[in-house]
Design a binder for these strands. Structure first.
Lengths: 252, 252
DNA sequence: TATTTTTTGTGAGTTTCTGACAATTTTCAA
DNA sequence: TTGAAAATTGTCAGAAACTCACAAAAAATA
């Protein structure tokens, strides 16, 4: 009875974003305001909502609001990344073990990730924190010096970290791609890491939004034929797709 | 003048997470509460903060440490932790190298940390992200499986990580302390890690707020005489202080 | 059924917030 | 520099929201 009401309350706030106590009172006519206040307090202590003057708002709402302000700063074509992440999330089977990088596309994937029993290795701090919210999933962070601009770790000794780890699948993304140069990124240690990840994995999924095509970054970590599946958005050029398909790479 | 104050206000909230109007009043002694209220209103309309009863909180804070981690942080005596963190931050010299754990007190310290040239090793993901905001500071995260409830890493192979690292100073905190049991915490892998950190460090600073006294957790990682400096709050009992001082431990 | 525990309601008292208006400071043109 | 307009700030009273303590009700337990 109490439990249910609290869940309903949390749901309601998640859907509506922000509600006043009066509005909540309308939704729950057979309990007093005081009870609702107490429920809200409990939800706040669980970190699920934030109580504001006059009512409460869901944490998700805050993340969304901030997302708008924050997204502009961080994410270039977030839409494409989101759609790519959604596609990628459908490819993850229960009880598998996989590697993800720490980039913004990986971050999208982390958010879209189903809460199933899988083990994820990552070098992204934000990715790890996001994944740690999921109950059924376990996460291991690769240690190393923190790269400030993308909050991921990298270290020349990453090889050691990989020695005792096993994963079937690596899902990574690149900062740049051309057919002849391959997939590249800006940092050498990161390129090293990704290279190791792809060698270790049985299967390699590459997430690449179409804005990356034709760009070149200093360090190549994979060639066209190294990957098994390419996950991209709708604006990906058809002739480019053909190029991948010729090498027996699944494009989706 | 107004612009500057508002920016400062936003910065402050971003760093501290959540502050009451009274606290804000202390920071801005030469303006009235009403002015601060108006400033907060403006910041809220910009989507940068959320006004809550009694004060305001930063949006970044919510999105960064969502869920359980946030709830915990607000829960147990944040004031004492802040004061302890402030004391600890004064003890850090430029160009040194130190270890910090991933607990909530360490998180406070991370926020209070001066932006100077030091190298920090930590097993806390949130701590690492916080520290990564500082320009002059460099951070290394210890790898390992992520412990979901406190967002820190731990792994049985942490010993290997420590092998190639050197730091003079370890600043750690405990979940519990009694004179005979010593400093203890709830997780075995974490206790192992902290034990290694203290053995590796030349000097060991322990941050302990007074609410931890008399409590016992399953795994002891240091005894009273292992530490060099104890950093605590004002409510720390005098007789307990004496106990430390008898062992030549600095109490502050 | 009796007893304990948990949950809920009520109202007084406190704290925080808002609105209106006056005082002050800043801006800008003459 | 001076004066007028605009913006910013302070004060205070009234309103709104919140908390606390205790009693009533409901649920759980013996």
């Amino acid at each position: 009875m109490k439990r249910e009401r609290i869940e309903e309350l949390a749901d309601l706030l998640d859907r509506r974003g922000r509600l006043s106590l009066e509005q909540l009172d309308d939704f729950f006519p057979n309990v007093s305001q005081m009870t609702l206040r107490r429920d809200l307090l409990q939800l706040e202590q669980q970190g699920r909502i934030i109580r504001v003057r006059g009512g409460a708002m869901s944490v998700k709402e805050v993340q969304k609001v901030s997302g708008e302000a924050y997204a502009k700063k961080t994410a270039s074509n977030a839409d494409a990344k989101l759609r790519i992440a959604q596609k990628a999330s459908t490819l993850i089977d229960e009880n598998c073990s996989l590697f993800m990088d720490g980039g913004t596309t990986a971050m999208c994937l982390a958010k879209e990730m189903p809460d199933i029993s899988v083990h994820v290795f990552t070098n992204g701090l934000a990715v790890a924190i996001e994944l740690a919210q999921k109950k059924n999933l376990s996460v291991t962070v690769l240690g190393g010096q923190v790269i400030k601009d993308n909050l991921s770790t990298a270290s020349p000794v990453a090889k050691d970290y990989f020695e005792n780890t096993n994963f079937e699948l690596a899902i990574i993304s690149a900062s740049a791609f051309t057919p002849d140069i391959g997939f590249s990124c800006g940092s050498m240690v990161e390129a090293d890491l990704l290279k190791m990840a792809r060698q270790k994995a049985k299967t390699l999924y590459m997430m690449l939004d179409s804005s990356k095509i034709g760009k070149i970054m200093p360090h190549t970590f994979a060639r066209l034929e190294d990957i098994d599946v390419l996950i991209t958005d709708d604006s990906f050029p058809a002739d480019m797709k053909e190029l991948f398909r010729q090498k027996n790479i699944v494009v989706m």
